[in-house]
Amino acid sequence: MLTAKDKIFLKGLQTDFPLDARPFGLLAGQAGLSEEKMLAYFRKFERQGLIRYIAPMFDLRKLGVVSTLIAMRVPVGQLDQVVRIINACPNVSHNYLRDGDYNVWFTLSAASERKLKAILTRIRKESGVEDMLDLRTERVFKSQAIFELR
């Protein structure tokens, strides 16, 4: 169980993990714990799956990366085979089954428009799925996977 203190602590760390040579030591000092205790606390949350990882989050667009969201209408009988093809592509970071007219939704990124198109053409050919929407981003209002803990 998370205490109210844990929740506040983890919420803040989603946006501001310390940029310090000894970040866990710094956090430990603020909390009145030893560095070792603080690391044990993080390791516990990682083991529990509450913390997936700690890392810098890049703005892919500013790095020149082209990204899109693809919606596919995949017949249920072909799902396993199509998912295998999509998941095998290292340029795909997220792929989900959703209810609705279009049932498979995945995100795709590449170094250029040409490369992105080539990957899409290949996925279309290998999967045999014709009904596919390339839902290119036109404007980002929010992109922030930050959660209040409950």
Binding site: L50, Y53, M57
Partner: peptide, 24 residues
Amino acid sequence: IKAYKKAGLIRRVGVVLGHFKAGY
């Protein structure tokens, strides 16, 4: 890292939560 963050190339340095475990 601080300079990249200031320039917006890094949006944040932080903990990524497993949202299923976080109650979502």
